[in-house]
Amino acid sequence: MIEVVGLSKRFGSTLAVDDLTFSVKPGAITGFLGPNGAGKSTTMRAILGLVRPNAGTTSILGQQYRELDQPVRRVGVLLETFDAHPGRSGRNHLRVLALAGGIPRARVDEVLSLVDLGQASRRRVKGYSLGMRQRLGLAAALLGDPEVLVLDEPANGLDPQGIRWLRDFLRTLAADGRTILVSSHVLAEVAQTVDEVVIIHRGKLVQQVAMAELEAMAAGSTTVRSPEAERLATLLAEADMGVRAVGDGRLAVAAPPEQIGEIAAANGVVLHELSVERATLEEVFLELTGEPGERGA
């Protein structure tokens, strides 16, 4: 279990994370999504005690990271920045981590073989490709066979086979009851893997929602425009429909147009537009994060 409550972090004049609250359940994979610069890495580093928050609290397994006994054995971490000394071999890098974490040396060979890095393990890290570095980072994260995994952009640099392996592997770990938080700035990259998504933008929580619900938004969203949009939104919400105002008197409703039309007619609400939207997941993501033009910046 990971919990973030009211987290804020400022770097100089930049507010990187702004009163962010969310939780990550065990036994599921939670995607942590947002455009570049949304505050994902800062939040993850705050959870791991690498960044000191200006406000709020974070906890893993009910404790602050720094309070955990043998943290390497309990929390596996992959950071976006590469964290091995270029002059050391991949194998020695893992040996150092194993020794520091009280992990048996035999586990080093196990994880090297798991990430398919056995052949290159005695080479110095500075000669590794991006994909090999990412595999080494994953090996480091898995070294302690941890209950919790915090992975920042784990698919970066992996080839399609590697991404598929990672996806299947994470699913196996989640099925085993472990807590997994995976960040990405591309929804499509994690859509097939995650059970739930936490979407942030400019450091603020946009939505924490089940992946199935996000998919429903994409597949069955209906746009309705009315001069009485506010009243209509209330009526639809009372009928247990997911409603979001999308501006200009428009509402995006997670329900078929027939049901919406019936409720409007029964309550005498005038409609100017009623149309089915078939958005892609990526479009839903962009709409939620508000500013499509910023993506990839």
Binding site: R45, R66, F82
Partner: peptide, 18 residues
């Protein structure tokens, strides 16, 4: 200073958070 120069400090502090 090697830890800060090569970015290994994050991994070191994950093992030694205090």
């Amino acid at each position: 200073t090697n830890e800060f120069r090569h970015g290994t400090i994050a991994r070191t502090l994950l093992a030694t958070p205090r």
